[in-house]
Amino acid sequence: MRELAMGRRAMERAVAAVAWAGTLLVVAAFGALLGELLVRGAGELSWRYLVEAPRDAGRSGGVGGIVVATGVLVALALAGAVPLALLAALFLDEAGAAQAGRARRRLAAALRRVLDVVGSVPSIVFGLFGNALFCRAFGWGESLLAGGATLACMMVPLLTIAFDEALQRAPAAERAAAAACAFSRAATLRHVVLPHAWPLLLAGAVLAVARALAETAALLFTSGYVDRMPTSLLDSARSLSVHVWDLALNVAGGEARACSAALLLLLLVVAIEAAARGALAWLRRRAGR
């Protein structure tokens, strides 16, 4: 009996040791990633780097126009995707209500499944789609507009799923109370659903911004590579992520500058995510009081 217990304890220790070792390996890999970028890229980061135009295919100079192009792409994507996703989420919310007809409920179920599927489509496939539809069929060419529209298509499923979850936060009892007070649907949304849902709605949108910033493959054939400051929505322009890829793969001697751009991109994305999470946690704590 005692021996058995000993054997079990040894086994316990072995499993723990292996698990700790694996975890350390993951932490080390992440440390290496951060360390590498910080050591090699931080030196270049400065205000001048942010505003100066790239020179010599990006080997020197800054990322001036690229930052602007990135912002425009993300803004276009948000402007296209947020209203559509919000409305689609409202549809799901309404169809979830019991009095909705059978057809509506079926449509909602189908939509949920389709959103799951579209949300898992590789981003490069969205790139192909955007290239065929926006650049060619619509004749927008490789442009900010085409890139933003492609990003918007990618964001719609993710945003709708996030918004749908946010709307479900409103308690059924309060919805019933609103109905009993003879509230219209619009009033119920505004006074009952939104007060519960808005932190998560906002968090969903902010996380979508982070995803859009990180996106590269969908932009390769839709917004193009041009590294000048864009002057119109139909200009081709490159995002920060495409800049990293181009410097790393196509520009000999571009590695050092790719480090800076990658670090900048990473910092932006991580800062946005952390801010969204932090704000959400803070709101939760406040609501919990």
């Binding site: 019933a176 109370a177 009993a180 003879a182 009033a187 006074h191 009952v192």
Partner: peptide, 30 residues
């Protein structure tokens, strides 16, 4: 219109997530 005419009170009180004053003001404004 029907629900305006027929009011209801539930087993558990359900106040809206806002102030006392607004709980009363909302239905009137609506």
């Amino acid at each position: 219109e029907l629900r305006r005419q027929v009011g209801m009170l539930f087993q558990r009180p359900v106040v809206f997530p806002t102030t006392i004053a607004r709980n009363l003001d909302l239905p009137l404004r609506e």
